[in-house]
């Protein structure tokens, strides 16, 4: 069984995001970029399924600027077998929308014929939480989002999902899309020898145009602003003082 894992290059989760003063967006020039943390979890899960003998090949794909090659190399160093880069933008500030990404992924799925696509549940930049669900709709496949446990037996996968009320377990018919949540696993770090080996693994480059997908955005970003700042607070010296303040405010 082949597994396809889409990975996105995003601003590193530890970097303090700076909104540009002119409201045109977030400053991404000379900022540390990394693999979307949820996608790391997806890559890890695919590799574990290969190590268990469930999967035979793990193919990673990234859609965006050419620098996303670095993200793909990270996934290869973790243990993915092969990578595909779909160039769809020149400027690092261009975010390809989930609908266009899903359309490109649907084409790649057509070429690669995986039985399972494992994706992150959301990208930590646009916070859309949509690509997996959209891909699943375009393919007419089953979907299991927000996975915290995944097991594959025969032509079905059993997935435990993190939902508002607790946990839900469902069984999805393969081929399927699974999107992963934080608790699924702890991704490994790539070792130095594996980073060296990853440089020799195959990485195919295509363009969105090659695949015949229009990536023009449906949503125009009119403005990007700083969130409203909170008024400065105060420190209290003791529990008694805190209780007094809360009572004064009528909060307790």
């Amino acid at each position: 069984m082949k597994i396809l894992v889409p990975v996105k290059r995003v601003i590193d989760y530890n970097v303090k995001v700076r909104v540009k003063a002119d409201g045109s967006g977030v400053d991404l020039a000379n900022v540390k970029m990394s693999m979307n943390p949820f996608d790391e979890i997806a890559v890890e899960e695919a590799i574990r399924l290969k190590e268990k003998g469930v999967a035979t090949e793990v193919v990673v794909v990234s859609i965006g600027v050419k620098q996303a090659q670095e993200t793909l190399r990270t996934a290869l160093a973790m243990g993915a077998d092969r990578a595909i880069l779909v160039e769809a933008a020149d400027d690092v500030h261009t975010d390809i929308e989930p609908l266009a990404v899903a359309k490109i992924l649907a084409k790649i799925v057509g070429e690669e014929q995986p039985q399972l696509v494992i994706a992150g549940k959301q990208a930590i930049d646009n916070d859309m939480n949509a690509t997996g669900q959209m891909l699943s709709a375009l393919l007419g496949w089953s979907q299991a989002t927000f996975a915290s446990e995944l097991s594959v037996e025969g032509d079905a996968a059993t997935v435990t999902r993190e939902v508002d009320g607790g946990l839900q377990t469902i069984k999805v018919r393969l081929p399927a899309i699974v999107t992963v949540d934080l608790r699924l696993n702890e991704p490994r770090y790539a070792s130095l020898p594996n980073i060296m080996k990853a440089k020799k693994k195959p990485l195919d480059v295509k363009t969105a145009a090659d695949l015949g997908v229009d990536v023009a955005p449906r949503l125009t970003v009119v403005k990007t602003a700083e969130p409203a700042a909170r008024a400065a607070g105060e420190m209290v010296g003791s529990v008694d003082e805190l209780v007094a303040k809360l009572k004064e405010k009528g909060l307790v």
Binding site: V17, V26, P227
Partner: peptide, 30 residues
């Protein structure tokens, strides 16, 4: 295209939503 987590409705086509873990608020027009 879906518009996730709308935090304010500006008009029939235009919405605000938080991005980057709430570090920025985008106004998007569909």
């Amino acid at each position: 295209m879906v518009i996730s987590d709308v935090s304010a409705v500006i008009d029939a086509d235009t919405f605000e939503r938080p991005v980057y873990a709430g570090n920025a608020v985008q106004t998007v027009k569909s």
